[in-house]
């Protein structure tokens, strides 16, 4: 695999006891575009993300921008320039929106050494402020900056989590159902933000999502899992017309979803 490929996963297998949650899945998600990972409930999408992040035991190899990160833990992987959001949101509930987002950058700056965790230099403080401002702007949540996160609606919380991830300035981003709990309008807004971030910063994104209107809009290439096995991969329009995917995942509902940005 070449270096400019963002994330590559080779022959990933994850077992929980006797249950094989992900079986021999290979995929690659290049930088500069959004790659979709879809599939029915329990197909192994979240498990795949967890394995990419090194928080579950797995077999197979994972590379990020050409670096083999198979044996690294979660912190090591995020220090390679990757971050994620969670299907079940993990926010700093008692902090304000601004503090949540700025922690996205500050955690990275604090990193792993004692000294940097203990004190911050003025330069790194300025960086944090700038990153926070940009992320809040990009997600359109500046007005919320002083609200305590736990008092927000589900949709707003999702945006805060996304903003925090952006403020981290990752080179690669794993998103797990970022639009669940957003209403249709907010989902649309989210799609716009995501597209512009990917375009402007050239980062790679692996997106797990059930909202096909969002997937078909932002994803260029899609992998489909079922029962832990990769059953299909292809461009957006190939995926939407595949009878296999339709039977396993889409159902009759969204057969006429307009083809998205891949066209």
């Amino acid at each position: 695999m070449t270096t400019d490929t963002g994330l590559t996963v080779e022959n990933l297998t994850v077992r929980y006891g006797g249950h094989v949650a992900v079986s021999n899945v290979s995929l690659s998600a290049p930088a500069g575009s959004v790659t979709g990972l879809i599939g029915p409930n329990g197909a192994g999408k979240t498990t795949t993300l967890n394995a990419c992040f090194g928080v579950v035991k797995s077999a197979g190899e994972q590379h990020l921008f050409g670096v083999n990160m198979t044996r690294k833990g979660a912190v090591g992987r995020s220090r390679l320039g990757m971050t994620r959001t969670f299907q079940r949101m993990r926010l700093f509930d008692t902090l304000t929106v601004e503090e949540n987002v700025s922690m996205g950058r500050e955690a990275k700056a604090a990193g792993t050494t004692w000294l940097t965790q203990f004190v911050s230099s003025p330069a790194s403080r300025r960086q944090c402020e700038a990153a926070t401002r940009d992320a809040l702007n990009a997600c359109g949540i500046e007005e919320l900056r002083d609200r305590t996160v736990r008092n927000l609606s589900t949709g707003q919380r999702r945006l805060v989590e996304f903003a925090r991830a952006i403020a981290n300035e990752p080179r690669f981003l794993l998103l797990d159902e970022p639009s669940s709990g957003l209403d249709v309008r907010e989902t649309e807004g989210f799609g716009t933000v995501l597209e512009s971030i990917v375009r402007d910063r050239g980062i790679g994104v692996l997106l797990v999502e059930h909202d096909m209107s969002l997937v078909s809009r932002v994803c260029r290439y899609v992998y489909v899992l079922d029962f832990g096995i990769k059953i299909f991969e292809g461009t957006m329009s190939e995926t939407l017309t595949s009878p296999l995917v339709r039977a396993a995942y889409l159902g009759q509902e969204l057969t006429d979803v307009p083809a998205g940005s891949d066209a």
Binding site: F53, A74, R90, F92, G111
Partner: peptide
């Protein structure tokens, strides 16, 4: 008031998130 204090308060809420953001 400093960075360590901010990290400690954040960690009390969601340690996994800090890890995902690159903090040990």
């Amino acid at each position: 008031q400093g960075r360590l204090g901010r990290i400690l308060r954040a960690r009390a809420d969601a340690p996994e998130a800090l890890t995902a953001l690159g903090l040990n």
